[in-house]
Amino acid sequence: MKKLHINTSINGNSAEFLCDPDATLLSVLRDQLNLTGAKEGCGSGDCGACSVTVNGRLVASCLVLAAEVEGAEITTIEGMAEGEVLHPLQKKFLEHAALQCGVCTPGILVAAKALLEKNPDPSETEVRFWLAGNLCRCTGYDKIINAVMDAAAEMRGA
């Protein structure tokens, strides 16, 4: 298989890589670029652990070919905190103990951030439906929802 040469931007930095035409964005992020924050929970779009944004849209990176992101802007969990300063969602997840094992957390944070950018004042039901594609098996979602609602409130206040 002939490799493709892709130019893209990841978390604001330009990135360049070679990939197989059938490689997923997730596998390139994890195995080539050492961005292992996105996880492969299923590889079939069902769990959301691999969530990233491409040109501002929330997607499952296991269902995106790396070849498709030529010229695109990608953000991952690694780009969420600014230096030492955590994003309000990250802070609220810690404060609300919204993670147990934490493997779903990067995907949920990326998804929740995409929600709050679109809708700064979501209802609890809206948060639950927006996050329905992010499976968490540990928490029962309760504390996750609380953390998102609280972060939204704080961000609206700020």
Binding site: T36, G37, A38, K39, A81, L86, L94, G102, T105, P106
Partner: peptide, 18 residues
């Protein structure tokens, strides 16, 4: 706050496949 929390909200925590 839990000691492993920051690693887990920033994607730094190393799981089995990482």
């Amino acid at each position: 706050l839990r000691p492993d929390g920051i690693d887990k909200v920033t994607g730094r925590a190393q799981y089995g496949a990482d």
